[in-house]
Design a protein around this nucleic acid. Structure first.
Lengths: 339, 339
DNA sequence: CCCGTCGATGTAATCGATTCCACGAACCCA
DNA sequence: TGGGTTCGTGGAATCGATTACATCGACGGG
């Protein structure tokens, strides 16, 4: 691969001049510029980003450590992050933690070793010393979706409280009283908050959330299945199951189907995080939709602000309830149908 | 951030000795090794991967340019690629081409500039000069899922011919005669091959695939919707629609639902690529499943073989038909139900 | 006892860029 | 016409690692 020296030789100038042309430094004669450009073209030269990064101490790369790529919510988040980053002149390296703290740590270390300019994290747990140290040491960082309390890092997330209240109102309106939740890991903020918001909203309607109706999941489908089976085994099973993310809802659907039961006739279902497939499941699933694309873009903007020396603010956007048919009641005045 | 010089100073040795300890060079005394390790620990030193890459000309990084991250098939592929790469000591940088040749080119250029050790590509089109040049110039490269004919690069893919024959047999068994396909872009191998395989299989059953029944899609949901609407507008609409990927199947489902029609009663549906959601759609979708995880792992192994100087072979694995209810017939002997 | 070998270590070149500094030429204004 | 700018350019240091080569001391064999 041709290096800057080859270009300099071909153009009959010094490497300094080549570098100036490439970086649009004003102080280069038109003649020199033309010769350099011709040499670049002739050799098919492309600057070595590794060498450039070493010298400038900038990689123009963002790290994104995500909890689970297979979760469509995070996939969409990753996509919007990459888009906005590209628009701002950055590349993104994605690390998939698979909800495992050890993997999360592996990726954070890897990204830090590669000297990424900034880190976007959706933490799987309370944060490893590695990550906390990096934050303290001044590595530009932004939390997205989930965060770690007590760490001085901007947070970009959705607030689902209002939407959860809407959901509870919807459930009560349909006459449901015994409602259960499949919670996310207590180590995550979203895991805790969704339970809290749900409990508070229920309280406003005079309903309780007994311990037996709080199942401990891990945001993955399998745990949704397991917890739902537990609920169905109860002497008095809940009338509604609210899954704290879309994958656990999928697991719940599996469990219900495996028993030969039907949603919403035998048990109702709602989920946090809306995804395109929920329109086409049987039945379509009532869900709380986050403004995912906006979150990703806002997170990148906040991070790049930090990197480039500007403040970089936290952002909270509202989520909203999307009512479909999985909790009962037909939104359209027709007979129950399969569609 | 501490550099190797700081460690050397702290340990009272030269940078060469530090480097030797870090790289497990045999010729270092136990005493020196211990002092270096202590210094590394004390300073929280981590080697700068950028500097190391510049010197060694290896980044231990693979580039993966994927057609569309939002497609669950590719998401799963990306995940398995990352897993296998990690097991072999490599990181992966993913570039999402969104089925756009210009974006694909952007990512290939970016990855090449970053001097990745090897490139995994699922080409969106016939290949830009940039990519072809890189292949010719000897950049280790492997095509996965899709490929570009006439380029000397190993290909890791699934062969769907047998599964498509099974599908056609299934359709004929159900009495369907007028079958249509939503094809992928003609610029992609999978776009062409799936139509070809379908046509051949139909021929074996004495059926034709008229031009009016070949809709041109682009592997994205919206095109599936559009093409399906076209089919439904025909004087004699097809009895079956076969979507060449899962997103176009989703679009087809949208279009059918928008007309107030039902699958499979009014029109049957099948798809290439199976995904977890197809179990839960209404109705569950009959699909051709690829061994996605195996493909990703095999592709990484082939690429790493190439990088490390071994041959690196093409791999073709069989796909298989998964029959569900979207083409009609109830696999279980019960009445039509919603589940 | 001397020389060759081997093990441990340091010095310095190197990878491919960026950028500070110095230098010469041209130009401007008094 | 002379001194001070300004502009274009090249030389060389630098980023943080790896590694070829030199050096030096200890040790073993003849």
């Amino acid at each position: 691969m041709a290096s800057i020296k080859d270009v300099a030789a071909e153009a009959g100038v010094s490497v300094a001049t080549v570098s100036r042309v490439l970086n649009e430094h004003p102080s280069v004669s038109a003649a020199a510029r033309a010769r350099v450009l011709a040499a670049v073209e002739a050799l098919g030269y492309r600057p070595n980003a590794v060498a450039r990064s070493l010298r400038t101490d900038q990689t123009h790369t963002l790290g994104l450590v995500i909890s689970d790529v297979l979760n469509p919510y995070f996939t969409e988040l990753a996509r919007s992050v990459e888009e906005e980053a590209r628009a701002l002149g950055y590349s993104v390296i994605i690390g998939n933690a698979d909800e495992r703290p050890d993997l999360q740590d592996h990726h954070v270390r890897n990204l830090l070793d590669r000297r990424i300019d900034g880190l976007l994290v959706s933490p799987t747990d309370g944060g490893s010393p590695l990550m906390l140290d990096a934050a303290r040491a001044g590595t530009p960082m932004v939390f997205v979706d989930r965060w770690i309390p007590g760490v001085d890092v901007p947070v970009v997330r959705a607030d689902g409280r209002a939407a959860v209240r809407d959901l509870v109102a919807h459930l009560c309106g349909l006459g449901h009283r015994r409602v259960a939740i499949i919670a996310g890991p207590a180590a995550t903020t979203t895991g805790r908050e969704r339970v809290e918001a749900f409990r508070e909203a229920l309280a406003a309607y005079g309903l309780e959330l007994p311990d037996a109706y709080i199942g401990q999941g891990d945001f993955q489908a399998e745990s949704g299945r397991r917890v739902t089976e537990g609920f169905l085994d109860l002497a008095e099973p809940p009338e509604v199951v609210f899954a704290a993310d879309n994958l656990m809802a999928l697991g719940a659907l599996d469990a219900v189907r495996a028993r030969g039961l039907r949603v919403p006739d035998d048990i109702a279902l709602a989920a946090f995080d809306d995804i395109p497939w929920f329109v086409h499941t049987d039945p379509p699933v009532t869900a709380i939709a986050q403004p995912t694309g906006e979150l990703g873009r806002a997170a990148v903007r906040a991070l790049v602000d930090r990197i480039e020396g500007r403040p970089g603010e936290s952002v909270t956007l509202p989520a909203r309830l999307v009512v479909r048919r999985s909790c009962g009641e037909n939104p359209t005045p027709v007979q129950r149908s399969t569609s």
